[in-house]
Amino acid sequence: MATQLNPYLSFRDNAREAMEFYRSVFGGELNVSTFAEFGVSQDPAEADKLMHANLSTPGGLILMGADTPNSQERSDTSNISCSLSGEDLSELQGYWDGLSAGGTVTVPFEQAPWGDTFGMCTDKFGVDWMVNVTAPK
Rank of each mutant, 00 (worst) to 15 (best):
S24H: 10
E29M: 13
V40F: 12
E46R: 05
E37H: 07
A47F: 09
K49R: 14
F38W: 11
D43H: 03
N31D: 12
D48Y: 11
F26K: 03
D48T: 15
M51T: 08
E37S: 10
R23H: 01
D48I: 11
D43W: 01
V40H: 06
A36H: 13
R23P: 02
D43R: 06
E37R: 04
V25Q: 01
P44K: 05
N54Q: 14
Q42Y: 01
E37N: 10
A53T: 10
M51Y: 10
A36N: 14
K49F: 12
G39K: 07
S33G: 11
N31M: 11
F26P: 00
G27S: 07
V25T: 05
Y22V: 04
E37K: 07
F35C: 02
V32H: 08
N54L: 11
F35N: 06
F35T: 00
A36S: 14
H52R: 05
P44E: 05
S24V: 01
N31K: 12
D48W: 12
G28N: 09
P44G: 01
T34A: 10
L50H: 00
E29V: 14
G27H: 07
A47D: 15
P44I: 01
V40Q: 11
V32F: 09
V40S: 12
V25R: 02
V40A: 12
H52I: 01
P44Q: 07
A36L: 14
S41K: 03
A53D: 08
Y22P: 04
R23Q: 14
H52T: 05
Q42H: 08
V25M: 02
E46K: 04
G27P: 04
V32S: 10
E37V: 02
F26E: 01
S41E: 00
K49E: 05
T34M: 08
Y22D: 07
E46L: 04
S24K: 13
A45T: 13
H52E: 06
D48R: 14
D48G: 15
Q42L: 06
A36Q: 15
R23Y: 00
A45H: 10
E37Q: 15
F26T: 01
L30M: 10
Y22R: 05
V40P: 03
G27E: 08
G28W: 04
L30R: 08
L50G: 00
Q42T: 09
K49Y: 13
N31C: 05
L50Y: 02
E29K: 15
F35M: 11
P44T: 05
L30F: 08
E37G: 09
K49N: 12
G28I: 03
P44V: 01
K49H: 11
S33V: 13
L50A: 03
A36I: 09
L50S: 00
G27V: 03
P44N: 06
A45I: 06
